[in-house]
C-alpha cells in the first residue's frame, strides 16, 4: 500500500503545510473579508429598502387619511347645504301654498256672496212676478181687485210654505 511508505511522508507533509497555510492566509486576509463585506452591504441595502418602503407606506396611509377626512368634510358640507336649501324651498313652497289657499278661499267666499245675492234677487223677482201673476189671475177669474201689497204678502207666504 503506497500510503504506508514512510519515505513519502515528509514531502506530503511539507507541501500540505505550505499549501494549507497559503490557502488559510488568502482566505483569512482577502477572500472571506470580501465575501463578508458583500453580504453585509447587501443585508444593509435590503434593510434600508425595507425601511424606506415602510416609511413610504406610512406616508401613503397618512395621505389617504387626510384625503378621506377632506372627503368626509366635503360630504358633510354638501349635505348641510342640501338640507338648508331643501328647508328653504319647503318653507317657500309652504308660504306660497298658504297664500294661494287664502286667495282661493277669498275668491270662493266672494263667489258664494255673489251667488247668494243673485239668488236672493231671483227669489225677490220671483215673488213680485208671482204676486203680479196672482193679482191679474184673480181679477180675470173673479173680478176682484187685489191690492199689490196683499198679493205680495200671500206670494211670499206661499213661497215660504213651499220652500
Amino acid at each position: 500500500m503506497p500510503q504506508l511508505n514512510l519515505l513519502d511522508f515528509p514531502p506530503q507533509l511539507v507541501w500540505l503545510a505550505i499549501t494549507f497555510v497559503i490557502l488559510y492566509l488568502v482566505m483569512a486576509k482577502v477572500a472571506l473579508p470580501r465575501v463578508a463585506e458583500v453580504l453585509e452591504t447587501r443585508a444593509e441595502r435590503i434593510r434600508d429598502d425595507l425601511d424606506r418602503a415602510t416609511e413610504l407606506r406610512n406616508e401613503a396611509m397618512a395621505a389617504q387619511a387626510t384625503y378621506e377626512k377632506a372627503l368626509a368634510e366635503a360630504r358633510a358640507q354638501a349635505q348641510n347645504v342640501m338640507r338648508e336649501t331643501s328647508a328653504k324651498l319647503t318653507a317657500a313652497a309652504a308660504a306660497r301654498q298658504a297664500e294661494l289657499a287664502a286667495e282661493l278661499t277669498a275668491k270662493t267666499k266672494a263667489a258664494e256672496a255673489t251667488i247668494a245675492a243673485a239668488k236672493a234677487k231671483a227669489i225677490a223677482d220671483l215673488q213680485s212676478v208671482a204676486a203680479e201673476a196672482a193679482r191679474s189671475a184673480t181679477q180675470r177669474l173673479i173680478g176682484v181687485e187685489v191690492s199689490p201689497a196683499d198679493a205680495a204678502r200671500v206670494a211670499a207666504a206661499t213661497l215660504k210654505e213651499r220652500g
Binding site: 515528509p10 511539507v14 507541501w15 490557502l23
Partner: peptide
C-alpha cells in the same frame, strides 16, 4: 528533509488555486 514536489503536491496547489480563484475572482 525530503521536500520534493510530488504529484500529491501538484493537486494540493491546484486545489488551493481553484479555491482562491472561486473565492476572489468570483467576488
Amino acid at each position: 528533509v525530503d521536500a520534493s514536489f510530488t504529484n500529491s503536491a501538484v493537486f494540493m496547489v491546484i486545489a488551493v488555486a481553484l479555491v482562491t480563484l472561486l473565492m476572489t475572482y468570483s467576488m
